[in-house]
């Protein structure tokens, strides 16, 4: 009961402190919020790219194009060769005539009609039975060495590149979060240090009349927690605002590709974690500042 009361007193004192210096509290909260919004914003970006990737067909598709000079005998040979590949589940032939018909029925029909001869090659759509990147690579190498094959296109290449880019982005987020987290710690510690100095009289008198270090520390620690939580909320606000500002552009791009895609905030758990981490860092910063001051006081008092 007694300890709850002491905590309530500390909480009240922390809130009074916030109200006593509203401008500097606000400015510090803004700095904390903006610092925290960078890693959170980057995370949100990656989260959205990730979910966009999730909407794309994940199946591996390999397309091979034969040389335009390929004869029906060549096609038969390739078909036989393909049948002997253990890592292929399916291989379907699209002849140059079929491809031309498909194109004619599209918007380019008139243009195709004007061509003197069919420029399209015979092609195979291959579906591998494996998703192991090494075996896929081996398959692609084997096929591309066949003399009848002009080129081979492995559709997962760009996805792989994007995935690598995403991994890089994730590492960048972690680095950025670590760097800005440290900055946050310093900012919070400095902000609290200013307060500790302005309340030096109160701290000194309290200690002289029997306050424990815990009692003195508590309001500052709570202040740090509160300020961190406000900063975390502000960071989420910044990200929401940024999303609101860029989402018309995203919608435009998405509609060009006839895709429906809307930017989304990360899951609530992640947002809560962002607030918790910001609060935690500011709390630690506050404790560092007060402890430093208390050590100096203890030292002075012999």
């Amino acid at each position: 009961m007694n300890s709850i009361r002491l905590r309530m007193i500390a909480l009240r004192s922390a809130m009074q402190q916030m109200l006593r210096m509203p401008l500097s509290s606000l400015l510090n909260t803004i700095v904390i919020g903006i610092a925290a919004s960078f890693p959170l914003g980057l995370y949100t970006l990656l989260f959205n790219v990730d979910s966009l990737l999730g909407q794309l067909p994940q199946q591996n598709q390999i397309t091979i194009f034969l040389k335009t000079s390929a004869t029906p005998v060549d096609i038969k040979q390739v078909q036989t060769l393909l049948r002997n590949q253990p890592d292929l589940a399916q291989a379907s032939l699209i002849t140059r005539d079929q491809a031309l018909q498909t194109m004619k029925s599209g918007t380019l029909g008139a243009m195709i009609d004007a061509l003197p001869e069919n420029p399209l090659p015979d092609a195979f759509n291959l579906t591998p039975s494996t998703s192991d990147p090494e075996r896929l690579q081996k398959l692609v190498t084997t096929i591309s060495n066949w003399p009848q094959v002009e080129s081979i296109q492995h559709d997962s290449d760009w996805a792989k590149r994007l995935a690598a880019l995403l991994d890089f982005g994730r590492q960048l987020t972690v680095l950025l979060a670590a760097a800005l987290g440290t900055a946050l710690l310093v900012i919070a510690s400095n902000a609290i240090r200013m307060q500790v100095l302005t309340r030096n009289d109160e701290i000194e008198v309290s200690k002289l009349i029997g306050a424990t270090n815990t009692f003195i520390r508590r309001p500052f620690a709570y202040f740090g927690l509160l300020q961190g939580a406000c900063g975390g909320l502000l960071a989420i606000g910044c990200v929401v605002l940024a999303m609101h500002l860029i989402s018309p552009n995203v919608n435009q791009v998405a509609s060009l590709y006839a895709a429906s895609f809307a930017l989304r905030l990360p899951e609530p758990l992640i947002l809560l974690a962002a607030i918790a981490i910001t609060s935690l860092l500011c709390w630690i910063g506050a404790l560092l500042a007060v402890n430093r001051h208390l050590r100096q006081l203890d030292h002075q008092q012999g």
């Binding site: 009289d201 008198v205 200690k207 002289l208 009349i209 029997g210 424990t212 270090n213 009692f215």
Partner: peptide
């Protein structure tokens, strides 16, 4: 022990030469 000092002081009333009042 440093941690025991506050409890010692709670049994003592201190009147300071410079009063040490809080004006806030």
């Amino acid at each position: 022990n440093r941690a025991a000092i506050p409890y010692l002081r709670r049994n003592i009333g201190l009147i300071f030469q410079d009063h040490k009042l809080l004006f806030d």
